[in-house]
Design a binder for these strands. Sequence first.
DNA 1: TTGGATACTAAACAGCGTTTAGTACATTTG
DNA 2: CAAATGTACTAAACGCTGTTTAGTATCCAA
Lengths: 205, 205
Amino acid sequence: MGIAERKEREKEEMRELILRAASKIFLEDGYEKTSIRKIADAIEYSPATIYLYYRDKNELLHGLHVEAFQKMMQEFAQIVPISDPFARLVEMGHQYIKFGTQNPELYNLMFLMDAPMESLACRNEIWDDGLRTFDALQAVVADCIKAGYFKETNVENISLTIWSYMHGLVTIYLKGRMKMFEDNRELERVQQSFTLFVKMIKTSL
Amino acid sequence: MGIAERKEREKEEMRELILRAASKIFLEDGYEKTSIRKIADAIEYSPATIYLYYRDKNELLHGLHVEAFQKMMQEFAQIVPISDPFARLVEMGHQYIKFGTQNPELYNLMFLMDAPMESLACRNEIWDDGLRTFDALQAVVADCIKAGYFKETNVENISLTIWSYMHGLVTIYLKGRMKMFEDNRELERVQQSFTLFVKMIKTSL
DNA sequence: TTGGATACTAAACAGCGTTTAGTACATTTG
DNA sequence: CAAATGTACTAAACGCTGTTTAGTATCCAA
């Protein structure tokens, strides 16, 4: 009997309906304003219904978290055709900065918020999405080593170090901590620093 | 007449009383649990009273923000006696990592939270505390240049680049994004990456 | 047809930051 | 000294929040 299958399908559709509404509100109005009640309103169900499909708000945010990483990986796909590994790494950095600065709410969700992590913690899943993205970086770094750009060989350590820098730069910008340089040339400073960092890894790794 | 002065003093004492209670709760229970109602409870006043001394919660958090920076600068003071500029810079990095990892809630408040920034924004003050700390870094970097350690001369850009890395590393750790390396050697990885970064700036700046 | 699973919700719980209206007391003024 | 003004404080409410409980319909299997 296909009834169980249909129910399963309907359940999945409902999960998707909720996630779409949540995503829309999250992207339009930001995290602060993405409340369960508002999501419920948007899909014309009661707030309690949402809890029949997601155990809590953290799990729902984890759903958006997954989508955010998909979007980032999609943008990283643009760098694949670049044949020179180092040029590919540099372009990956540009894409990272671009993604972060243009999607502050998503970036926050992906790398700063506690909520989606806590959803994973209690089910001791692992942080798959983040790992896949980190692997993408590691792959490019490994190519740089193979092509003789770097003398260092600890791919994981090099990748973590590069990511740390990129993440710090983007976060300082996004969280308004660059406003201390009173002029309004924050994005210029981001680019300037990135140029210096590229020079650094080129000459010293 | 000294009445105005006494009232002024009492007002300041009350502000301090509130701040001390807020600080205690913040350090013990973290940001999430630091509510106006709980602070009011601790000092045995009504929640509304707090609003006679702080315009809103953001301004109160900014008070803690100021103290957090004082504490950090205090720990940075330990590096002053180190005569070699580069060794001083490296030790400053160690202190930064130590402060961040041992005071996660404070670090969050200082460099990640929106709240204390928003308090400044509406009064268009500037981010003095952060600037002073950044200046401390710039001073050490300038010394490194003078001592011939670096060939680069843009102190601000070098400092921003170094801070970006440090901040990224600490944030990745604090926000649990290093848990993807399933083994439990996160702090070890932090040190390993820092060692690599030190090598990088030594050979390429 | 009946009985139990399923889908859903109204209402409540316990918390939040903040504001309003009003009281009690301290101080200044006539 | 009494009346008027100003100050310090708070109870209660407003409008939110995430989440749970209890109850009502509806669907489906026996």
